[in-house]
Design a protein around this nucleic acid. Structure first.
Lengths: 205, 205
DNA sequence: TAATATAGGGAAAGATCATTCCCTAAATCA
DNA sequence: TGATTTAGGGAATGATCTTTCCCTATATTA
């Protein structure tokens, strides 16, 4: 199920799957993101994924299984986008601004209204589902670590002062980006979000 | 229903209500906060509020009605706590730190795990319920305005430099506190949150 | 080509849940 | 005191949703 990159030469035994797993998960995570986990019915999922309910239960254990797979897919896609933005040859300071800009981009307008799967759904489940709680915590920690590394990079290349508290500042920026996702659900413009980002960059001086 | 402060001299016609409305709403909002709106059943509410389902439907139109009342109650309580912390004779800069400290207090440990009703439930409903969306946006705007006012106050008393962009900084701090609520659901210590607050105060220098 | 294995799909079953109904209880009003 | 009004409570209802079942379709393997 996780091995979706397998080439078509090593196919399984029976009838091959007709839909693309990643495409289906992209559609599913959109629905989960917009409606929340509990408000998403199997009907909503089958509509979006263009599958019959029986087919969904063939491909996944249950509704929670669809969510877990969609969550992993979401993390993969978003990590990729973040990596694409920060894996440059710019100075650490600028890379941090680029990272925060990415969050400003997804936290406004239509995309902002859609919200973040980690924020909306995961925190909806994390209280009573230890496995989801673990995944959410891992996602948070991962994001915090990326920010922490960028700050360290900036301190090495001289674009961020040595006196900056890397750990605490990374945590602050993590709260900022998660908060942008929440505030972005109530509708903000890109300019409003970017203004907040600009102010936040003062913590790196 | 909103007039819960009415004295017992001006009582209504029929049998008087046996439970305290605010106490019941405090219990209800705890459940909504912890489980989320859709995962909260009437059974969960009757258990917590110690009322029969029939009684709940006597006091409220429906489940959504309970939520709306609980949401208002939540806003009243939280606004009161915030007011109690910032309505002092301290300098603007210190009052802002006190406000952020309040959010650090509720965003860690047990209370942090409980989460924020505005963040968790409201954003869960805001997408498909315009009335809730309006309430959430109002709550955000209100918090942003409080922060904006405190910054202005600080600029008047000289504790915050005049060059600080009040609007943008207030928006940044709003994102920070909402983000603390999200991150706080995954478990952080008070010290970790306070370290982030300390860094955030650099934006006011 | 027959056997086996897996996918697609939709109807049916089984659970859960929000809401209503109806009866009883306790207050005010005439 | 009897009529009226509102609250408390729990069983019954009706709607909705998750999951299973079963049949068909399409692939590989022997």
């Amino acid at each position: 199920m996780t091995e979706t990159t397998a080439s078509d030469t090593m196919r399984g035994r029976g009838r091959p799957r007709e839909f693309d797993m990643n495409e289906a998960l992209d559609k599913a995570l959109r629905v989960f993101s917009e409606r929340g986990y509990h408000a998403t019915s199997i009907g909503n999922l089958t509509d979006a994924m263009q599958l019959a309910s029986g087919s969904v239960y063939k491909a996944f254990k249950d509704k929670r299984g669809v969510f877990l797979a969609a969550f992993d897919r979401y993390r993969t896609v978003r990590s990729g986008k973040l990596r694409a933005v920060i894996d440059t040859d710019k100075m650490g300071y600028e890379r941090i601004r680029d990272a925060l800009t990415l969050y400003a981009d997804v936290s406004h307008g239509q995309t902002g209204k859609l919200g973040c799967l980690v924020v909306s759904c995961a925190s909806e489940l994390a209280t009573f589902d230890p496995e989801v709680a673990k995944k959410v915590a891992a996602a948070m920690d991962s994001n915090e670590a990326v920010l922490r590394d960028l700050i360290g990079l900036g301190q090495n290349d001289g674009s961020v002062p040595a006196h900056v508290d890397g750990k605490a500042t990374a945590r602050l920026l993590l709260c900022l980006v998660q908060g942008m996702r929440v505030v972005g659900k109530t509708g903000r413009t890109r300019e409003e979000m970017m203004a907040a980002v600009t102010v936040a960059m003062k913590t790196l001086t």
